[in-house]
Design a protein around this nucleic acid. Structure first.
Lengths: 338, 338
DNA sequence: CGCCGGAAGTTTTACGTATAACGTCCGCTC
DNA sequence: GAGCGGACGTTATACGTAAAACTTCCGGCG
């Protein structure tokens, strides 16, 4: 341990090894071939180990003008989904010597408009999902390389985008239900102004609308079990013909829908079919298990990080949406089954 | 925008405002009273705004020798619980001008042994939960101020600890079930080597053991719905008297237990009572809703951050565990109810 | 009138690192 | 025996910021 309680620097290591600070930097930076003898290099490494030397990252970042750190902005940590996104992104990042810093939804966390106030780390780039336009322009203003996840390619100010093929997922749901014979749909939509949810509504209406004698009603709810329960209960007890299929914008909403159905004495799937979107653990915890669309969150994170690395290296990121798959379980059946 | 594509520095601002770099630093650092005239200060601020100046954090961190950034290590992001911990910690941190960086569970993310490889930001301190001893000593070796969440006060090498009063939570569960008349318990335990889970097993055995003619069997499962399903199904179909109460180490395990009960044709709570621990959204998505112990994750995060700030300022952190509360719902009832 | 003190700045320095530019020694070649 | 190049280093510098130390000007006081 150092005599003062301050952390050892490369100069301390140099002194201990009897060489100059530059030599230490060369050895530890693995750039010493032909510049420092094998024996000296070993002495330096030993001194560094003895002193417990760790390079000062602030100094390194300042010197190099980059940080090998990337910010991942997510709307919330409350679902496994973004945990998966993080996992994938962090894996790819680690392979390239990068680190990932998370910035969860600003709601209620303070100076919401500034991601950098929270993650005070200096950054090389940003991966953002579902970000509001003003925050987006703020980041763009910083000239930071940016990749947007699941957002409107037209509205992202020229930033690279990586999208799940949600449109195709909704298409699969619609075809599945139409194929079972359903004609009257209730759409339990997330009450969030975000492109990814607008796409769901649009595609559902388009697919169902292409078939004669069908109808789609829509009701909005905040993304929580309680909120979905309230909205779904109201919509299902409204006058008029009862829908036979309830399409939910995500699995949490579907969980609320289950509770609404129970309260109203409706059996799933006999009286009403229900679908979700995400395939969270929640989906198989429900009874009956939920028919839903599986999103590969980790792959999503990997692709996002790869795109950012491409931008950082001046390459053009791969285009192409990430495929998603319908998982049929017990919550869907033909209408009017026994 | 600057002529070169490089970001403007305080020197650029100085030049634009016709003052020295030092003046810029004083003004923007809000230390200019009596050192710079009101008019000049305004000119500097305007120039900074025009150029879109943002201080280089690496340089600032290097100069100040601190980063106002703190690392929060969590075992996983897959539950709302740690999202809540983060939210609370970040709120307190923001109030003190600090940022929080998350380091989720290393499993499968690469060089697992080194939190600092992932979050390459320089750090002022660390808040860690459920951390293995070797990683702990690594951090301690770095002399970084450390606060441990939910870990054995005796095993934390002198680091400050902040704990939920899990012992009391388990006590409440045990008293509740004993009060209902249950005598034969099955403990569905998390298959994780962590102090916080050991406490659960110990306290349950102690409370139930204090009553005559009782029994507690234990079965272990990984913390996932599937794992819990398998373990619970096996344990419940084992020979011998069937337990009437199933105490689960957390809500996810309880969700698996629900599925096991359904498979075996056991009705909850009529044939068997089930309890969880956490009070996730999952708890109310289940049917019947789960009797569980509510943990105030946000408060936990807040207290953790406050403790770390205390350590950083050389104060002694508040002691005292955070109280938890049993929430009784539909999954528990007297044994042998109709 | 001499001098003090405050306002309004500027000059200078240090933080720890990475690396370009510069020495020095020695063995070899021509 | 002059010179050259490789091995093995060292010295010096820059990154952008914060702040201590210094300068200059000027009004007021004894």
């Amino acid at each position: 341990m150092a005599p003062g309680s301050t952390r050892p620097t490369s100069r301390d290591v140099a002194q201990a090894a009897g060489v100059s600070q530059a030599a230490v930097s060369l050895v530890l930076g693995d750039k010493w071939r032909g510049r420092v003898s094998q024996a000296t290099a070993e002495r330096v490494r030993e001194a560094a180990r003895d002193l417990g030397y760790r390079p000062n990252l602030a100094a390194r970042n300042l010197r190099l003008g980059r940080t090998r750190t990337v910010l991942l902005v997510v709307p919330a940590l409350t679902t496994e989904f973004f945990a998966g996104v993080y996992t994938g992104a962090a894996r790819v990042a680690a392979d390239h010597g990068f680190g990932v810093v998370l910035y969860p939804s600003p709601e209620g966390i303070g100076p919401a408009r500034d991601p950098f106030a929270s993650a005070q780390a200096a950054l090389d780039g940003v991966i953002a999902s579902s970000m509001a336009a003003d925050a987006l322009t703020a980041i763009r203003g910083d000239q930071l390389p940016l990749v947007m996840l699941d957002s409107d390619p037209k509205g992202s100010l020229g930033a690279a985008t990586v999208n799940l093929d949600i449109t195709d997922g909704v298409r699969q749901v619609a075809e599945h239900l139409l194929g079972l014979g359903h004609r009257h749909f209730l759409h339990l939509a997330a009450d969030v102004a975000s492109w990814t949810f607008e796409v769901r509504a649009h595609e559902l209406a388009a697919r169902v609308g292409a078939v004669p004698d069908t109808s789609v009603r829509t009701t909005r709810a905040p993304i929580s079990i309680e909120g979905a329960l309230t909205a779904a209960e109201a919509a299902l007890s409204a006058p008029g013909p009862r829908p036979t299929a309830l399409v939910c914008d995500d699995d949490k909403l579907a969980a609320g829908a289950y509770k609404a159905a129970r309260r109203l004495g409706l059996r799933i799937p006999d009286d009403i079919s229900v679908t979700g979107l995400d395939d969270l653990a929640l989906a198989t915890a429900l009874d009956p298990e939920l028919t839903t669309v599986r999103l590969d969150a980790e792959l999503f994170g990997e692709r996002g990080m790869e795109a950012l690395l491409a931008v950082l290296e001046g390459r053009v990121p791969d285009a192409g949406d990430i495929p998603v798959h319908l998982v049929v379980r017990g919550s869907t059946a033909p209408p009017g089954a026994p």
